[in-house]
């Protein structure tokens, strides 16, 4: 009788344990595939996963493709990267190499190499993970299904603004969590840029010297230092010696980062640097005293003009229409 009773109780306990274990494992599996956890793992993958691959970067303007570049990428965890530009002909031979906090950008057409001191990768990753939580509070993250990119199974993650406007779509490797495809959209949901791997290998064999860079003989070497720590707008205005002229218009969701202003030297001239952010992306407005009046210069994702004795440069991931709208709202 007693034995039967004990066996009965044990069976009940076993059933209850099984139920709890099943619930726990289902919840864990769900946690693994929430958009936030996938993005978090994708950020971490930058310092934990090594690979080589071929990718295409396309830039669009008003829905039209204006630039397409093919690159070979070598990435060795935790902090080494080499990007070779393969096509078009005008970009062939261009090179980016970063090792730790030192980055080199070389362009054979200008025979110019820029050496940049950037924050260490681990510091960048830590900041990015902190900032990701803010994105999750202001944007909607959605797991929009699964897809195959470069022969790899991927999670598709969509990011929307509170108004339902798609900002970004990412295809993240289902096993290694490397971002294999990214599409970015403007405020009207027009495609702004697209980056897509067409080949990827997670068993890379890096040839010796892959991450070495020596400026070629006769090459002009330019040094660019890391900017000073950000300061408040008021402090920056005191330091630069003039008041900031702020735009009356900003795209929806963007605001001035008042505590992240800075003063930098550009070709020996003090320049006020104001960042604007929508938590996902950043705009920069540079303001300095104009040496002369010059024509408006429209670069890729930037516009420069002079007005009221100042030279302004606006730079960021916006369409030219939006850029011009902001420009028109800046009245010294």
């Amino acid at each position: 009788m007693k034995i039967t009773h004990i066996v009965g109780n044990l069976s009940r306990i076993a059933v209850i344990c099984t139920v709890f274990a099943t619930i726990a494992s289902v919840q864990m599996a769900e946690a693994e595939t929430t958009p936030l956890s996938i993005l978090r793992r994708s950020i971490n993958a930058r310092t934990t996963v090594s690979f080589t691959g071929l990718r295409t970067v396309v830039v669009f303007e008003n829905g039209q493709r204006v630039r397409e570049v093919r690159q070979r990428v070598y990435s060795q965890a935790p902090d080494r990267m080499r990007v070779e530009f393969l096509t078009p002909e005008s970009e062939r031979g261009r090179l980016h190499v970063s090792v730790g906090s030192i980055r080199w950008d070389y362009h054979p057409n200008t025979n110019r190499a820029v050496r940049i001191e950037a924050p260490p990768v681990r510091e960048k990753i830590r900041n990015r993970l902190d900032e990701l939580d803010r994105i999750a509070q202001t944007m909607t993250l959605q797991h929009a299904g699964r897809d195959t990119i470069a022969g790899r199974p991927t999670h598709v993650i969509k990011i929307y603004t509170a108004e339902g406007v798609t900002v970004q779509k990412s295809w993240i490797d289902g096993v290694h969590f490397v971002s294999l495809k990214t599409q970015r959209f403007d405020g009207q949901e027009n495609l702004r840029s697209s980056t897509e791997y067409t080949e990827i290998s997670y068993e890379p064999a890096f040839a010796p010297g892959t991450f070495d860079f020596e400026p070629p003989r006769g090459c002009t070497v330019v040094e660019s230092s890391r900017p000073a720590e950000p300061i408040s707008l008021a402090e920056a205005e005191r330091k630069v010696g003039f008041s900031a002229v702020l735009p009356e218009y900003l795209p929806r969701g963007y605001s001035l980062q008042r505590d992240r202003a800075n003063v930098i030297e550009v070709q020996g001239q003090k320049t006020l640097w104001l960042p604007f952010s929508n938590t996902m992306e950043t705009l920069s407005l540079f303001q300095r005293r104009a040496r002369s009046t010059g024509d408006v210069h429209q670069g890729s994702r930037s516009i420069t003009w002079t007005d009221g004795g100042f030279c302004f440069t606006l730079m960021g991931p916006l369409s030219r229409t939006e850029m011009r709208r902001i420009k028109q709202s800046i009245e010294p």
Partner: peptide, 29 residues
Amino acid sequence: LDELILKHQMLEMSQPLADDVGVGLVVYT
């Protein structure tokens, strides 16, 4: 302008879902 692009890219790199520098070199010219 190249100098300003470098500074802006550094700022952009601090964004959680920013592309790597290789992509930034194509987007900003």
